Every structure is written in C-alpha cells, then in structure tokens.
Amino acid sequence: MSTALQRRLTTLRRAAQQKNHFAVDSVAAQLFASPDCLDHQINLVGAMHEVGYLRNSLEPYWREFRADEAPWLHRCVERLLRGDHDYWAVAALLGCSAQRAVAQATELGFKVFAVRQYERYDLPPVRVASLGVSAGNIITPLLELGWDIHAQTLVDCARARAAMWQRQDIVSGSLVGEGTLSYFCRATLPHGAWRTVSLPFSIEADAVVAGQCPRPTFTQAN
C-alpha cells in the first residue's frame, strides 16, 4: 500500500467515525489489512458513494484501484450476476468506460435487449443499455448501464433480481413495455442511491435509440 493511500484511508476512517458512516469505516479497516483485495476495494468505493461522497472524493480511489479497468469490471459484473443486494458493486461501476463495461457484461453472459436515451437538465444526455441473462416475460437478472454520451463513461447503473413484463413489444430492435422490478438498486453520478424491494418499470418507445440493440456503438475509443 502506498503512503498516499495510507494517509487517505486514515483520514477517511476518521471522518467516517465522526459522521457515523460505520460501513465506510469497516471496509476501510479491511482494506488496511488486505490492500490488494479487489473485493475490499470495490466495497470501499461503493460504500463511499452510498453515503454521499461525490466524484472529487471518489476519483483518487478510482485512479488508485482502477489503473487497469478490466479486472475491476470483471469482478463487479461477476458479483452482479448473483448478488441481489450488492449495491456496492453497482456503484463501483460508475466512472468506468461504458464500452468496456458493456463488453465485459456480454462476455459474462448478459445480452443487450434495449437501448434508450434520456435527457438531463444541465448535463449531456444519458444512453442506457438494458441487459439480462434470461429472456421472455421475466428477464433475470437485469443490469442497466447508462453513460454520458460525450464522456462515454458510466453515470447511471442499476441491477434488479428480475424484470417481470406485463406488456412488451419490439421497437427498432429494442424491447419496450412496462412491468415490475424486484430487488432493485441504482447508483448515479453526480449523486444518487436507491434500493427498493419492488417498483414499476417501463421502457418507452419514444426513448429507444434506433440501430443500437443488441450491439450499442460508442462515439470515441475508451
């Protein structure tokens, strides 16, 4: 462990203890004991995002732990294949290359079934690839990877145990319709953390990006 990381973790633990951020403190302590453990690194970044740390606080850890994104992405997606409550792995995807993340997810068995886009008030639009392992009226698990269309990095990630469709259709190659998600969690930049047992879900036809499913394209190399 570098001296700089030791100092940063010491400062982080002190602040976490003062703010009652017990999960952050606990994961930071585990990282002190096993600094090369990828799961501890992922857990720390995810726990920090969950309690409200912003990009400027997360980026030093991104640089430290994600010099090579490939093993990071592989482990996050691997955890999300089976982890119904793994918010930390969801949040740890934020800031990663969207192109690499989609490629890693498909390599591990996910398939893109829809690509849509939504606007943000004062930031570039976000393009979202919806992926699942199974197909049909119940898609399980659901993984959503959303990226800033200019920076091409992930800013909106979500995972659900299942997407249960009540109505569905195909528009421009993407699955659209409405239904319900179970055991859902979502993490966004610049901030935002959600967990819920069940909620309505829809992909609207007018949000679909034509020609992007099942192989979304990316406008710049990552």
Rank of each mutant, 00 (worst) to 15 (best):
S2V: 02
A4L: 09
Q6D: 14
L9C: 12
T11A: 13
T11E: 15
R13D: 03
R13A: 04
A15S: 13
A16M: 05
Q17H: 11
Q17D: 14
H21M: 08
H21K: 06
D25I: 00
D25T: 06
V27R: 03
A28T: 08
Q30P: 00
Q30L: 05
F32C: 04
A33P: 03
A33E: 15
A33H: 10
S34M: 07
P35V: 00
H40K: 10
Q41V: 05
Q41D: 13
N43E: 15
N43M: 07
A47M: 04
E50G: 03
E50A: 11
L54S: 10
N56T: 09
S57N: 11
P60T: 11
P60L: 06
P60N: 13
Y61F: 15
R63N: 15
R63V: 11
R63S: 15
R66N: 10
R66H: 08
D68I: 04
E69N: 07
P71M: 07
W72Y: 11
H74S: 04
R75Q: 14
C76T: 02
V77E: 04
V77D: 00
L80F: 05
Y87G: 02
W88M: 00
W88P: 00
A89W: 01
A91W: 03
A91H: 05
A91R: 03
L93R: 03
C96Q: 08
S97I: 03
S97C: 09
A101L: 00
A103Q: 12
Q104Y: 01
A105R: 04
A105P: 04
V112I: 08
F113K: 08
V115I: 03
R120C: 06
Y121W: 13
P124D: 10
P125C: 05
V128P: 00
V128D: 13
V128L: 07
V133K: 11
G136M: 07
T140F: 02
T140L: 00
L142A: 01
L143D: 15
D148S: 09
I149Q: 09
H150P: 00
T153W: 00
T153G: 02
V155E: 03
V155N: 00
D156E: 10
A158M: 02
R159Y: 10
M164N: 13
Q168E: 07
D169R: 09
V171Y: 14
V171T: 15
S172M: 12
G173A: 12
G173Y: 09
S174P: 05
L175S: 12
E178R: 07
G179Q: 10
G179E: 11
T180G: 01
T180E: 14
F184T: 02
R186P: 02
R186W: 11
A193Q: 12
A193P: 03
W194C: 00
T196Q: 14
T196E: 15
V197Q: 14
L199Q: 15
F201R: 07
E204V: 06
E204Y: 10
E204K: 12
E204N: 10
D206E: 12
V208N: 09
C213D: 04
P214L: 08
P214R: 11
R215Q: 15
P216C: 05
P216R: 03
F218L: 06
N222F: 02
